[in-house]
């Protein structure tokens, strides 16, 4: 348990440091392309490896990971926030050309700390997507 915490903490620190470094990359350069997708591959690789280990440890104990019970109202709050952000981003494209766009990509380009924060969030999302076990229908708790 303690080693998992240490592992997660060190991974978080690495993600934050990498994001601070990545915020200095300039778009449309090969450095940004290689750096971004290098980080993506690294995060996916580490998360898949952890998932594989986690699943192997569970299966040797004979237990199948149950599906989490998700509160629908809580999930709806997540969905509502994501939808509002998506609508804002699309409407931000309609900003006149002489004004600054309100889209996420335009704003994070203007503020380096936001760029770093967003990069860290992006890597964390990738980690969750790769780490969470895939369960086929009918397995685990409904």
């Amino acid at each position: 348990m303690r080693s998992r915490r240490v592992r997660s903490l060190s991974f978080t620190v690495v993600i934050l440091l990498t994001s601070a470094w990545a915020s200095g990359w300039h778009r449309f350069t090969w450095g940004a392309r290689f750096g971004t997708f290098g980080c993506a591959l690294a995060v996916l690789g580490v998360a898949f490896l952890w998932r594989h280990r986690h699943m192997r440890a569970r299966s040797s104990g004979g237990a199948i990971a149950p599906l989490p019970i998700v509160n629908l109202a809580g999930a709806a709050i997540w969905l509502a926030i994501i939808l509002v952000a998506a609508v804002w981003d699309v409407l931000g494209l309609l900003t006149p050309p002489d004004q600054h766009h309100l889209t996420l990509s335009a704003i994070e380009l203007a503020y380096r700390p936001l760029h770093a924060l967003l990069f860290a969030c992006w890597l964390a999302i990738g980690c969750v997507l790769a780490y969470e076990p895939i369960r086929r229908k009918g397995r685990g708790r409904p």
């Binding site: 998700v70 509160n71 997540w78 969750v128 969470e132 076990p133 369960r135």
Partner: peptide, 11 residues
């Protein structure tokens, strides 16, 4: 009773 992002992904 709010799910974590991992719970939503897993579910």
């Amino acid at each position: 009773p709010v799910p974590t992002a991992s719970d939503i992904v897993a579910r």
